[in-house]
């Protein structure tokens, strides 16, 4: 069980926060992360219209052979994405807690500009305390 990485995607599809925890993912350049985040944003918009029965909030989990991508969409359109191992079961609670920290340490920080990259020491520290090195 491991948490590999965390992304925060703003409502326009831009990657505003990206951090790796445990090893296990292929290292990417920051540009590649931006492209992936944008792609995911598009896929998410498509999946929210695919549901055969009524409206849908979009994809929540994408599972691969070696990893799982957990997506939390907030009411304001910000997406929190957690990359974990397949066996990880705490992803939902961790995402919820990250959202809590985001509301406190980012949204209440007067030096943060909405929709811009997150450079808040408080957010870094508190996410670090929550997830640690990614090993549970």
């Amino acid at each position: 069980m491991a948490i590999y990485g965390l992304w925060v995607i703003n409502k326009a599809g831009g990657l505003v926060y990206q951090r790796n925890f445990a090893d296990g993912l292929a290292p990417l350049t920051s540009n590649e992360y931006l492209v992936l985040a944008g792609t995911l944003h598009g896929i998410h918009a498509i999946t929210s219209r695919l549901s055969p029965v009524g409206s849908s909030s979009g994809v929540q989990v994408i599972e691969g052979e070696t990893f799982k991508m957990n997506i939390l969409l907030t009411v304001t359109g910000t997406k929190f994405v957690l990359l974990t191992s397949l066996a990880e079961t705490t992803a939902d609670t961790v995402l919820q807690k990250v959202y809590d920290i985001y509301s406190d340490a980012v949204m209440k920080n007067p030096f943060h500009t909405p929709e811009m990259p997150i450079r808040s020491e408080g957010f870094d520290t508190r996410v670090g305390t929550l997830i640690g090195t990614g090993q549970t």
């Binding site: 340490a105 920080n109 408080g122």
Partner: peptide
């Protein structure tokens, strides 16, 4: 409690 002052303004105390 929720304020992170950026480094270039580290002098500032809210």
């Amino acid at each position: 409690r929720h304020i992170s002052v950026p480094r270039d303004m580290s002098q500032l105390s809210c």
